[in-house]
Amino acid sequence: MNKEAPRKRRFHLDPRIKVLILVLIATVEMFSLNIWVMTAIGLIPVFLYLTDHRVSGAIKYSIVFGLSVLAHIFRADIQLNMVLNMVIVLLGGFVLKLFPAFATGEYILKSTSVSEMMSAFSAIGLNRKMLIPLSVMFRFFPTIRREHAAIHDAAMMRGVSIGRKRFWKNPGQAFEYRIIPLMITVANIGNDLSAAALSRGLDNPARHTTYTDVKIGITDVVTLICIIAVVTAVFVFTTLM
C-alpha cells in the first residue's frame, strides 16, 4: 500500500467524470435517436461495470438490454396478441431508454466513496449545505439495503413473503408489513448517525478539508473522449447512411 494512493485500483474514474458520463447518457436518451445510437449508449454501463470488476453485473445487464434491443428490432415481424405485444414493446422501450442511466447511476454509487464524492464536489465549488445531504444519501443506501434484508428474513419467517399463501390474501398489508419497520429503523439509525456526526464536529463552520485527493487524470480524459467519439461516430454513420 502506497501512502499517497491508498486506493489501489488500476482503473479509477474521477467522480466528476462519472457524473458527466451519466448526464451525457441521460441527454442522448432524451432525443429518441436510432437504435444503433441507443445500443452504443447502452454499452457504456457494460464497459463501466467491467472496469469495476463486476463481471456478473455486466452480464446480467447485457442480457436484459440485449433482449430489449432484439425486441425493438423484431417488433414488427412478430405478431402476438395485442396486450402481450403492448407489454413487450413498453417494457422494451423502458429498458432501452432508462436502463443505461439507471445502471450508470448504480455504478457511481457503488464505485465512489463518500469522501471522494465530497472532495470532488467541493472542488467544483458546490455548497456544503448541498454536500451534506448528498453524502448522507450515499451513506444510507447500504444501510437501507441491509435493514431491508433483515426485514425480508423476518417476513419469510412469518410467511408473508411473495410466493406464500398469506402474502396474496392481503398484498397491501404485506407491503405495509415491510415498510413500517424499515421506516422506523432507518429513522432511528438516522438519529444516531446525526448524533455521532455532530459529536465529531460536523457543524464546525471552519473550512473543511478533505483527506482524499481527487484529480482529473489522463484516464478520465481518454475515457470521456472515447465515449463521445464512439457515440458520435455511430450517430453520424447511421444517420448519413
Partner: peptide
C-alpha cells in the same frame, strides 16, 4: 452500526 458517517474505514 450507527456511528459511522463514511463507508470507508480510513475516511
Amino acid at each position: 452500526k450507527t456511528q459511522f458517517y463514511n463507508v470507508d474505514s480510513t475516511e
